[in-house]
Simulated scan of single mutants.
Amino acid sequence: MLERIFERTLFASRWLLAPFYVALMIGLVVLLIKLAQELLHFALHAWEAAEAQTILGVLTLVDLSFTASLLIIVMFSGYENFVSKFDHTDHKDWPEWMGTIDFTGLKLKLMSSIVAISAIQLLKSFMDVKNNVDRDLMWLVGIHMVFVVSGLLMALTDRVVAGHHDK
């Protein structure tokens, strides 16, 4: 009986993750505010901006979009994998991937999103190379490569483990 109470309490503790997902939702609102700021700044200076500045502005919008998408993936997948399943019967526009991403898929999507965000940051730095120190650029390239290699190793590890379980 003590074991059963412990297991139920342990199982119920998964709801302690819910505030984390609420915090990510608030982070999404903050990103939306930042997007509005960047878009306003971008639009107000569109006529006088050089081509490189325009590309940097667009890359900033893409970067914010990727980061917001990453938050959505983590919020929904994390909630479904660790807290509770969504009842999406009333939602006609429910994305197919929601409810189908397991922890392995979540890790890979998360890592690929981080690589994409890192690549955009790197591209933004290369577009503004005159205002960046070589040392900083080398650090950005090194960090990006760590993300790329980590993602590849994670995917390879998951593939090897999945192949091992198939036998």
Score class of each variant (00 low, 15 high):
I114R: 03
Y21I: 01
A36N: 09
D87P: 01
L123W: 04
V141A: 15
L16I: 13
F11R: 15
A23S: 11
S69N: 06
L56T: 15
T67H: 05
L40W: 12
T89V: 12
K167F: 08
L110P: 01
L2K: 14
E51T: 14
L137Q: 07
L39G: 02
V62P: 02
A68M: 15
I101W: 05
H91L: 12
T60A: 14
K85W: 07
A162W: 08
L2R: 08
I143K: 06
K85T: 11
P19S: 11
A46Q: 05
L108Q: 12
I117S: 00
D87K: 07
L28T: 10
P19E: 09
S13V: 03
V160N: 03
K92Q: 12
V30R: 10
V141F: 15
I72N: 00
F11I: 03
A49Q: 13
P95F: 11
D166W: 05
T100S: 08
I114Y: 12
I73A: 03
L35R: 06
A119C: 08
G163M: 13
I55Y: 10
D136K: 09
D158F: 15
E51N: 03
S125V: 02
I143A: 03
D166K: 09
N81Q: 14
I101H: 04
D93P: 00
V62R: 04
L44N: 13
M75R: 08
I55G: 02
